[in-house]
Structures are given as C-alpha cells and as structure tokens.
Nucleic acid binder design. Structure first.
Length: 511
RNA sequence: GCACCGUUCGUCUAGGGGUUAGGACGCAUCCCUUUCACGGAUGAAACACGGGUUCGAUUCCCGUACGGUGUACCA
C-alpha cells in the first residue's frame, strides 16, 4: 500500500449504534493502526427526517468504550472538516452542478404522485420492477425531456426537483472488492439514483463519494449491504474524473441472527435475550430502553476480541488477542466472505477469559464500582476476599454478587433436594460441636483452621468427613454447591457462622 | 421476480487436487475436588446436492438447491 492509509467509519445518527457497526468501525480502526494511517469518523446525517437526538453522542461514547480512538471527527476536528454531512451541504451542490453540466446527471421535476402513477402503469404493462432508468426517464418530466426554457422556468419559479444520475443504458460496471475480487454489474439493471433530494440534501451515494474523495479516503471498509450500490459509486468516481483517487473497497460479510435468518436484528436479539447495542440506548422519542453490552457487564476488550473474530481470523490457533496484537495481525486478506451467525455464548466465554486474566486488585476495583452502582457499600478488604474466593467461577463482574449471594446474606431458605438427602442428626451433632469449638477459639478462624477443627470433630465422632460436608454447606450457604466452604467460613467469621448454624438447626427438620 | 454475494462439525472457523479434514465455543464422559465451577483428558459432531475436468475432488469448472443482501427523495 503506497498510498497513505485514511479510513473512515461513517454512521448515521438514527439511533443506537448497532453491534455490526461497531465491528465495521473496529475493522477500519485496525487497518488505520496497522498502516500508521488515519481513522476518521464522519456523521452521515443527510436524512433529516431520521435524525435522532443523542445518537451522535451515543456513537462517540460507544467507540470510546470499545477503545477506538479517532484522529479526525466532528468532535476532534481535522483539516478536512466539517465531518458532519449536514454541514457540507454547499459542497455537494457544487459537485452535482458539475455533473449536470457535463451531462451525467439531470433535473427531475416529477412529483411523487406522478412517478407513482408511472410505476403502476409499468406494472400493469408487465414490468416486474419498474425503475426510473434510461428507458423510462424519457417519459418523465425532467431536463432531458423538457426544453431548456421550461427547465429554467421551473428552476427559477422554485418548483421542487431532484437531481438524478444519468446511468448509461448498456455498460458493464466492474467493482474490485478486496474481499470478493471483481464483481460485475450491468448498468441496465441500475436505476437513475437520486443524487440530490428535493430538500437540497444529497443522498448517501453522492455525499459518500464526494466526501471520500475530498477526505482522501484510501479504503472503504463497510458492510456487504453496500455491495449492490457500489457500481453507482464507481460511476460517480468515473464521471467526476476521480478514478485515480478512487479508494479500494472491502465489503464485509454481514452479522446474521443466530439461526441465519437475516441480518442481526434488535427484535431477534430481544427474543433470545442478548443486546445488539454496545451501550444501553434510550430512545428519546419512543421512551424505550435497549440493553447494552457494557451494562450487561461485558468488558470492552472481550467485546473487541469477540467482534474481530466475527468474520476474520489470524490463520493460527490463537484466539485471545489484545488490541495491540490485532493491530499487527489484522488484514483485509483474511476477512471471510460468508455471513456470520451471532453466538452470544462465545461472547460470554471471551468475557470469562478476560475476567480471569485480570489481577485480583483490578477485579476488586471493578467489583466495588459495580457494588456502588447498586448502592451497596463494602470494604476494600472484604471485596478483595470475595474476589479471591469467587474469581474462578464468574463470567461477569456482577456474578460476584449473584454467585456469592451467601457471602452477603444468611440463607433463609434451603435447597430442599440437598436437605432431604444430606441433612441428618449426624450433621446436626457435628454443627453443634463445631459451633462450640469456633466460639471458644483463641486464634483467627482462617480457612486452614476451619478445616482442621471440623476434621477434629469428625475424627472424634468417627464420621467420614465427606459424609457431612454437604450438610454443613447447606446450613451455611443454603445450597449444595459453591465455592470452597472453608474459605466461606473464614470469610464469614465465627459469629456469623454460629448464627447460621443455629438458624439452620431450628429451621431444618431432621428426617 | 430480477441483480449480486455466499455455502467445511449446532456455531465461529483452519485447510486446500492425494490430510486420520485441524482448532475454538457449546455438548457428553472421565480425572481433580467436600460440592459446583476452574483446570486437565477423552468423545460425539462438518466439506449442501448433481454433473463435469482429473489417475484422484471437499478443494477447480458448470448447474441446482438453500441462505443472505439489494431493488427508496434510508443509510
């Protein structure tokens, strides 16, 4: 790559940024970093009817959370500013006029009703998908069919119009895609796309090409849903005379619903209970709140790792990658061609891996932050102990609380299955003796001591240690499974343990 | 409908004219363990189908099927 690498992520501020968009941003970012290039964020807000308040801020926060830093953006500025298409309106106007003058675009004055009528006529005549194209445009009201005077008159009278691209009738348009190779489209299947809307705003096609050119974008890395409109873009580059500056294209495989039934959708994800948004998204218009990965407890580095592998692989057996490693290893050549079904289990696994990779100190900090959010206060010391007891068994930070509920609250209900099998007079005898012994203890009740004392009792009573363990666990935690019981006892301390023993003995019936 | 893209275990994927088709998630079994988890070991599990080309095809070509995307004054 001899050209300076400049890539852009260009979302529309129409709502929360979809997780697929986050992956696209990530791929762009990795390419920028790999080649020491520039990562640009451009806001494509040309559809004013779909603009959603707060969406821009959301995009910014989401990228920040995931760890994507921007070199140029509406918020950081840059020498190619402005980076918001709505603020570049005048620029497009100029270029569209060039196209018209050179005969590659034309004014169209048809109203929606007129085109609708024409479409119905065509349908009635057996045309399957009527298009405003090289044939039909000659039957419509536009600067190709109207006289120069008529056009001028309409323009000066302020009659609304759009500008359409004059797509050639018969021409092969070849798109070179870095992932798919050459893809050929025939121009007869393309319609005369609107370039400039009647409100004076450009459509995606125009704005995109003009901006990519002006911003000297070297690679356009975007979702596969854009592949069908790539020939329109190619045509525009050609008509503008920018073929030499045309970026290289890479159309990414789509992220699909878990059963492969369409693009990953919010509705589907809701049904299966996982988010499609990186951050929680509160739609200001509909007053609804959508779940986000951050709030669900996913670590950003785990999400990066999970997302990058949705459509790319290093070709080795490595699967845990730091962002630095990805920066070196990532390559467009190793991006796959086929759609990728979303598997939330894999995301969970990555999260667990990253959680385990953190030091106890880091985890303690995260744990305390999580507790604070829930309005629970806990000493640093206790939090750290809980972390060390539970570290190997959690997938999310929030699991420290749920998995370790027995460290926070004494059980009030007991697992009936365990009780019916493991609760007996022997256990009660042991517990009573144990309570006595720990209450009169003159040293600290650590895990080692807790076990030693319990062993003493079982030895004295000639009981097998294993036979009463589940019963003891039941009394102290309310259940039959969990972390190392001796660690739990040490954590709770003799007073709490004694109270739990009393409670269990009075509330559980010996059978 | 039409155009385009795609198709290796359930999922993410490696591979590529001759392989015991490899790994990971998930699943199962076993080991470790006071239990559960972690960890370790093992196992079940895939080249969509049909034609070519070839000594040989999962790999190359063609077709079919299936899936996806697009077909807006949305991006």
């Amino acid at each position: 790559m001899d050209r300076k690498v400049r890539v852009r992520f260009a979302p529309s501020p129409t709502g929360g940024l979809h997780i697929g968009g986050v992956r696209t941003a990530l791929y762009n970012y990795l390419i920028a970093k790999k080649y020491n290039g520039t990562m640009i964020l451009r806001i494509e807000d040309t559809d004013q009817t779909r603009y959603v308040e707060g969406a821009e801020e959301y995009i910014r926060e989401a990228l920040e959370w995931i760890g994507i830093t921007l070199d140029e953006s509406p918020w950081h500025g840059g020498e190619y500013a402005p980076y918001r298409q709505s603020e570049r309106k005048a620029i497009y106007k100029k270029y569209v006029e060039q196209l018209i003058k050179e005969g590659h675009a034309y004014y169209a004055f048809d109203t929606e009703e007129e085109w609708d009528k024409k479409r119905k006529e065509l349908e009635a005549a057996g045309v399957v998908s009527p298009q405003y194209n090289s044939i039909t445009r000659m039957q419509m009201k536009n600067s190709l069919t109207l006289s120069e005077e008529e056009v001028k008159a309409k323009l000066t009278s302020g009659e609304p119009y759009v500008v359409r691209l004059k797509v050639p009738r018969k021409e092969d348009i070849r798109v070179q895609d870095m992932i798919r190779g050459w893809v050929v489209f025939h121009s007869s299947l393309l319609d005369d796309k609107v370039l400039l809307k009647s409100d004076g705003m450009p459509t995606y096609h125009l704005a995109n090409v003009v901006d990519d050119y002006l911003m000297e974008i070297s690679h356009v890395i975007r979702g596969e849903e854009w592949l069908p409109s790539a020939p329109i873009h190619i045509l525009l580059y050609k008509y503008f005379g920018w073929e030499q500056e045309m970026p290289q294209f890479a159309h990414l495989p789509l992220i699909l619903n878990p059963d492969g039934n369409g693009k990953l959708s919010k509705r589907y994800a809701d049904q299966l209970g996982f988010p499609v948004f990186p951050l929680q998204w509160k739609n200001p218009e509909k007053n609804e709140t959508m779940a986000g990965y951050r709030e669900e407890g996913y670590l950003p580095e785990a999400m990066v790792n999970f997302l990058v592998l949705l459509g790319w692989n290093a070709g080795t057996e490595q699967e845990i990658f730091s962002i630095q490693e990805l920066t070196n290893l990532f390559s467009i050549e190793r991006i796959g061609k086929s759609g990728t079904k979303f598997d939330i289990n894999k995301a969970k696994w990555f999260n667990q891996q990253y959680l385990k990779g953190k030091s106890n100190e880091e985890l303690t900090q995260l744990f305390i932050i999580d507790l604070n959010k829930k309005g629970i206060a806990l000493s640093q010391d206790k939090a750290e102990k809980i972390v060390s007891i539970l570290k190997e068994r959690v997938t999310f930070v929030k699991d420290f609380m749920t998995e370790g509920h027995y460290l926070f609250h004494a059980p009030t209900i007991f697992d009936e299955q365990v009780a019916s099998k493991k609760w007996n007079q022997q256990v009660v005898d042991v517990l009573l003796a144990y309570k006595n012994i720990i209450q009169s203890l003159d040293k600290e009740l650590d895990a080692h001591t807790a076990k030693e004392l319990l062993n003493q009792i079982t030895d004295q009573l000639s009981i097998k240690f294993g036979s009463i363990m589940q019963g003891v666990r039941l009394a102290i935690t309310g259940g039959g499974a969990g972390a190392d019981l001796m660690e739990i006892i040490a954590f709770l301390g003799e007073k709490e343990v004694s109270e739990r023993i009393d409670y269990a003995i009075t509330h559980l019936k010996v059978v």
